[in-house]
Protein backbone atom coordinates (compact mmCIF):
# COMPACT_ATOMS: atom_id res chain seq x y z
CA UNK A 1 0.00 0.00 0.00
CA UNK A 2 1.40 3.37 -1.02
CA UNK A 3 1.31 6.45 1.29
CA UNK A 4 -1.42 7.92 -0.95
CA UNK A 5 -3.72 4.92 -0.46
CA UNK A 6 -2.85 4.85 3.25
CA UNK A 7 -3.79 8.53 3.58
CA UNK A 8 -7.04 7.95 1.67
CA UNK A 9 -8.03 5.02 3.87
CA UNK A 10 -7.15 6.71 7.17
CA UNK A 11 -8.67 10.00 5.98
CA UNK A 12 -11.99 8.40 5.03
CA UNK A 13 -12.03 6.59 8.40
CA UNK A 14 -11.51 9.95 10.12
CA UNK A 15 -14.38 11.50 8.13
CA UNK A 16 -16.67 8.59 9.01
CA UNK A 17 -16.23 8.82 12.79
CA UNK A 18 -18.64 11.76 13.36
CA UNK A 19 -20.93 10.52 10.55
CA UNK A 20 -21.36 7.06 12.10
CA UNK A 21 -22.00 8.53 15.55
CA UNK A 22 -24.56 11.02 14.19
CA UNK A 23 -26.24 8.30 12.11
CA UNK A 24 -26.58 5.91 15.06
CA UNK A 25 -27.73 8.56 17.54
CA UNK A 26 -30.34 9.96 15.13
CA UNK A 27 -31.64 6.47 14.28
CA UNK A 28 -31.94 5.55 17.97
CA UNK A 29 -33.74 8.78 18.85
CA UNK A 30 -36.05 8.56 15.81
CA UNK A 31 -37.03 4.92 16.38
CA UNK A 32 -37.34 5.35 20.14
CA UNK A 33 -40.42 7.52 19.66
CA UNK A 34 -42.03 4.89 17.45
CA UNK A 35 -41.52 6.61 14.07
CA UNK A 36 -42.35 4.44 11.08
CA UNK A 37 -40.24 4.34 7.91
CA UNK A 38 -42.82 6.50 6.16
CA UNK A 39 -42.68 9.11 8.90
CA UNK A 40 -38.87 9.14 8.75
CA UNK A 41 -38.92 9.53 4.97
CA UNK A 42 -41.43 12.36 5.32
CA UNK A 43 -38.81 14.22 7.37
CA UNK A 44 -35.81 13.46 5.13
CA UNK A 45 -37.38 13.95 1.70
CA UNK A 46 -36.41 17.29 0.25
CA UNK A 47 -33.80 17.88 2.95
CA UNK A 48 -30.57 18.96 1.26
CA UNK A 49 -28.70 18.68 4.59
CA UNK A 50 -29.47 14.95 4.96
CA UNK A 51 -28.73 14.34 1.28
CA UNK A 52 -25.29 15.95 1.64
CA UNK A 53 -24.68 14.15 4.96
CA UNK A 54 -25.39 10.70 3.52
CA UNK A 55 -23.65 11.43 0.20
CA UNK A 56 -20.42 12.21 2.07
CA UNK A 57 -20.99 9.08 4.17
CA UNK A 58 -21.46 6.90 1.08
CA UNK A 59 -18.35 8.27 -0.67
CA UNK A 60 -16.18 7.86 2.45
CA UNK A 61 -17.44 4.35 3.21
CA UNK A 62 -17.09 3.19 -0.42
CA UNK A 63 -13.51 4.43 -0.77
CA UNK A 64 -12.53 3.08 2.66
CA UNK A 65 -14.02 -0.35 2.02
CA UNK A 66 -12.68 -0.51 -1.55
CA UNK A 67 -9.09 0.04 -0.40
CA UNK A 68 -9.56 -2.58 2.31
CA UNK A 69 -10.97 -5.04 -0.23
CA UNK A 70 -7.97 -4.39 -2.49
CA UNK A 71 -5.66 -5.53 0.33
CA UNK A 72 -7.84 -8.56 1.09
CA UNK A 73 -7.99 -9.53 -2.60
CA UNK A 74 -4.18 -9.44 -2.81
CA UNK A 75 -3.34 -10.98 0.56
CA UNK A 76 -6.08 -13.58 1.02
CA UNK A 77 -7.30 -14.40 -2.48
CA UNK A 78 -3.86 -14.24 -4.13
CA UNK A 79 -4.77 -11.74 -6.85
CA UNK A 80 -1.84 -9.80 -8.36
CA UNK A 81 -1.35 -6.13 -7.45
CA UNK A 82 -3.02 -4.89 -10.61
CA UNK A 83 -5.91 -7.34 -10.50
CA UNK A 84 -6.46 -6.52 -6.81
CA UNK A 85 -6.51 -2.78 -7.64
CA UNK A 86 -9.11 -3.38 -10.37
CA UNK A 87 -11.20 -5.51 -7.95
CA UNK A 88 -10.96 -2.72 -5.34
CA UNK A 89 -12.15 -0.09 -7.86
CA UNK A 90 -15.07 -2.30 -8.96
CA UNK A 91 -16.04 -2.74 -5.31
CA UNK A 92 -15.95 1.04 -4.79
CA UNK A 93 -18.28 1.53 -7.79
CA UNK A 94 -20.57 -1.24 -6.50
CA UNK A 95 -20.89 0.35 -3.04
CA UNK A 96 -21.29 3.83 -4.54
CA UNK A 97 -24.17 2.65 -6.74
CA UNK A 98 -25.94 0.99 -3.78
CA UNK A 99 -25.29 3.89 -1.41
CA UNK A 100 -26.21 6.71 -3.77
CA UNK A 101 -29.40 4.86 -4.77
CA UNK A 102 -30.34 4.86 -1.07
CA UNK A 103 -29.45 8.55 -0.75
CA UNK A 104 -31.69 9.36 -3.72
CA UNK A 105 -34.48 7.39 -2.03
CA UNK A 106 -34.06 9.24 1.28
CA UNK A 107 -33.97 12.60 -0.51
CA UNK A 108 -36.87 11.67 -2.75
CA UNK A 109 -35.47 12.02 -6.26
Amino acid sequence: MTPRLYLLQRGTAFVMVPLVITHLVVIMIAVHGGLSAEEILARTRGSAAWAIFYSVFVFAASIHAGIGMQAIAHEWFGLGQRAAAIAGHIFILFLLSLGLRAVFGVYGL
Binding site: M1, T2, P3, L5, Y6, A71, Q81
Partner: peptide, 9 residues
Amino acid sequence: VSTGTGCNN
Protein backbone atom coordinates in the same frame (compact mmCIF):
# COMPACT_ATOMS: atom_id res chain seq x y z
CA VAL B 1 9.91 1.69 2.68
CA SER B 2 6.95 3.54 1.11
CA THR B 3 6.65 1.35 -1.98
CA GLY B 4 3.77 -1.09 -2.49
CA THR B 5 5.66 -3.72 -0.46
CA GLY B 6 6.60 -1.44 2.43
CA CYS B 7 5.52 -0.24 5.86
CA ASN B 8 1.91 0.69 5.03
CA ASN B 9 1.03 -2.98 4.53
